[in-house]
Amino acid sequence: MRHLLSISDLNKSEAISILDTASELARVSDGAVKKLPTLRGRTIVNLFAEDSTRTRISFEAAAKRLSADVINFSAKGSSLSKGESLKDTAMTLQAMGADAVVIRHPASGAAQRLAENHWMSGSVVNAGDGTHEHPSQALLDAFTIRKHLGMGGSDLVGINVAIVGDILHSRVARSNVLLLSMLGAKITLVAPPTLLPVGIHNWPATVSYDFDSVIPHVDVVMMLRVQQERMSDLFFPNAREYSRYFGLNGERMAAMKKGAIVMHPGPMNRGLEISAEVADSARSVITEQVTNGVSVRMAILYVLLAGGALEVGSN
């Protein structure tokens, strides 16, 4: 495997092996010395053309724990804001000898374009492209679910997941639907019809417009952020109405199954899709998702970069 652009690049056993690798690497993060020499001498560029806290810091921490050199590169303060094209940026990175580029970009398909145009020879990791995919987030979500609810197995068979909210704009939802269904989980998408994409019935998931009827039957409630920056249209009458029908509050949380967990990829709009009471409750694994993110991203970088040049591309 050379790039990680989409969950569809992975088959089930590859996905499970990334999760297994991550759980071994998690032990490193728990240890006294949080550093491994594995990627010494490799350069990883974080190319973030869109704002991000968690993902960028998480990839940076992951790369540093594996002893790689990290160059952070964000749109603000770089020539991207002067209008430099992705191609020119990529060729600059190539000239500097980047072994991998972690890219976050507002345009869907940006990572694929970077990987497939031979502008650069390194690996490309998609850290979120427009409304398309966010594979590392899905992997860390699967890792978190498996850690909490996995019945000792390596996959997620028998687990019911509700993904709730702005499915239309959510790359997290797309990657999660692909990955969690591949791992055997049953997925229900809950959203107002206006926030569901065209062709939703071809996704490996069921759709519901009634959050309350779904809640008692699921093991995981994954809330999505209402992405106001991507909303050019009026998708729901007002925030209060959205919150009433599709927000997770204390009342709805009380109806959840025993042992069921609440997830959110962050950043949260407290009071809109999730109430503070729920976000800070014992059911919430939201900060743990962040912790697991580092281990999972270490595993991704290990799988993409630790192997030798001979095997690159041969999978």
Binding site: P37, A306, G308, L310, E311
Partner: peptide, 21 residues
């Protein structure tokens, strides 16, 4: 004690699975 992450020949072979420590 798994030593995979400390190997100096990682680049010469395909990525190996990490075993438990």
């Amino acid at each position: 004690l798994d030593i995979t992450l400390f190997r100096d020949d990682l680049r010469m072979r395909p990525p190996r699975a990490i075993m438990p420590t």
